[in-house]
Structure formats: C-alpha cells, structure tokens
C-alpha cells in the first residue's frame, strides 16, 4: 500500500510539472461541439445524453492511453526500469499507483463536457438516476485503471507501441458504443463490445440519464468491475512475466 501511495504521489508531482500532458482536455471541446451540433441540428433531444457521454468517456480513455499507459515505456525510455528492478520494493504497486493518479484526473472531462454543453449550446442533460450514474462512473474509472495496467505492460513488448495504441483507440470508441450505441452496430460486432468494459459503462450511464427505471444495475456494475479486475490481473501477470524475462535475457522488449 505504501508503494502504491508513493506511486500516486510521484505521478502527481510529475503531472504538476507537465501540464502539456493534459492536452487530452483540449481535444474535448471539439468532440463536444461535433456531437452536440449534430444532435441539435437533427433536432433529436433524445440523443443529447449520448452527445454528453461520448466526450466524457473518450476523455477517460484519452487520459488512459495518453498518459497512464505510457508510465512503463516512459521509464524504459529513460533507463529507470533496471534501477527499479534492483530496488527491494515490487514495481507493480508503484506503477498501479501512478496509473491511478492519472485516472483520477480522468473524471475531469465529465465536468468539462457538462460545462461546455451549457456554455456553448445552453443545454444540460437530465440525469434521472444520479446514484447509478456516479456508481457507473466510479466503476469505469476503476476498470480503466486495470485496463491501463494491462495496456502499459503490453506496451513494453514492442519498441513502437505508441502506434498500436493510437490505432487501437478508434475501434474502441466504436465498439464501446460511446459514439453510437452498440445496438446500432452490425450484429457480428456485438460480442466484441461485450468484453470492452466501456460498452457496459456507456450503456449503463445512458440508462442512468434516461427517465425509465434502470434494470439490473448490480449485474451491470459487476460486469464493469469484473472486466476491470480481469484486466488488472492480466496486466499484473504480464508485467511480472516481462520483468522476469528481462532478468533472464537482459532486454525488456521483444520485437
């Protein structure tokens, strides 16, 4: 736990000095404008909730891929990884702490989106089930932390993993239904959506904003958290394997 907290603290120190890393926040207005102008001009008030959710969740994912998942490759880049391996403390709680610190900031896009909607378009969506909404957001942040650890560990495997990650983002936006609800997607893509926690998040949050009662809240939250735990465990195992292999081979990448 101490190592985790030290990771959190260190990442806050790093971010404070690196405001350019918060560039993700600057891309959000564009998504907000795009989504809301489409919805407003099409006169589809039923889709307003969707237009608010997209920038929020894309912002969360953006923080994860832009900042959280690069903590390990970043340390490899500056040659801090072998120094960490030589230290008595284990590395995964430290990196998990650093990732968590970033993802706590992942809530900021939510506020930013609401604010921009009000300022630019004069709309704020109704949230009919605020508790469900916030529970879904919290579960999503947790799942994003787990997923980021997995992505961060995977990124060690390649030398130019940033390219893969950028490539990954758009399919994730589509499959997770943050842009367009999953039920509008071609049938064969749905199973893929089911294993992406963001699709559960988007669905549940959309329902939480609608007036109709939300069904199966517990199960759906569990799905988000469960997928997050799975990613967390997988990330931890992959990191351990990668570090063990580095100790055997003397190299961290494999491609």
């Amino acid at each position: 736990m101490r190592l985790f907290l030290s990771g959190v603290r260190t990442q806050f120190w790093l971010i404070r000095r690196q405001p350019d890393e918060l560039l993700t926040l600057c891309t959000i207005p564009f998504t907000v404008v795009m989504m809301l102008s489409i919805v407003m001009h099409a006169a589809r008030p039923d889709l307003v909730a969707n237009a608010f959710l997209a920038p929020t969740l894309i912002g969360l994912w953006g923080f994860a891929t832009g900042l959280a998942t690069t903590v390990l490759v970043g340390d490899r880049w500056i040659d801090a990884l072998p120094l960490g391996m030589a230290a008595p403390g284990s590395l995964h709680p430290v990196y998990l702490g650093r990732i968590s610190a970033v993802m706590v900031l992942g809530v900021v896009p939510l506020g930013e989106t609401w604010l921009l909607g009000k300022l630019l378009f004069g709309v704020t969506p109704a949230v009919h089930h605020p508790w469900v909404f916030w529970a879904a957001m919290a579960a999503s942040v947790f799942a994003m932390i787990g997923t980021s650890l997995l992505l961060a560990a995977s990124m060690l495997l390649s030398k130019n993993s940033n390219n893969y990650l950028n490539f990954l983002s758009f399919p994730i936006y589509v499959l997770s239904g943050v842009m367009v609800p999953v039920q509008y997607l071609p049938e064969f893509l749905r199973p893929l959506s089911d294993v992406i926690f963001l699709s559960w998040s988007a669905d549940l949050m959309r329902d939480a904003m609608a007036a109709a009662p939300v069904t199966a809240v517990g199960w759906r939250l569990l799905a988000i958290v469960g997928l997050g735990v799975a990613a967390l465990v997988a990330g931890r195992v992959l990191l351990a394997l990668t570090l063990r292999r580095a100790r055997e081979l003397g190299v961290v990448t494999y491609a």
């Binding site: 790093l14 000095r17 072998p82 120094l83 030589a86 430290v94």
Partner: peptide, 27 residues
C-alpha cells in the same frame, strides 16, 4: 547501484522528490 551517465532520472521531479521516490522503493 549507480550506473554512469545522466539517464535513469525523471527530469520533471526535483532532486528531493527523486530521492523521496526512490526511498519509498527501498522501503
């Protein structure tokens, strides 16, 4: 361990923060 050169340090941490970070890794 002290491996030569300047690498292995976080440019965006202060000297004190650097040592605090590594102290935590040394428990």
């Amino acid at each position: 361990i002290v491996f030569g050169g300047e690498r292995g340090l976080y440019g965006k941490l202060t000297a004190r923060q650097t040592l605090r970070y590594w102290a935590s890794l040394y428990k």
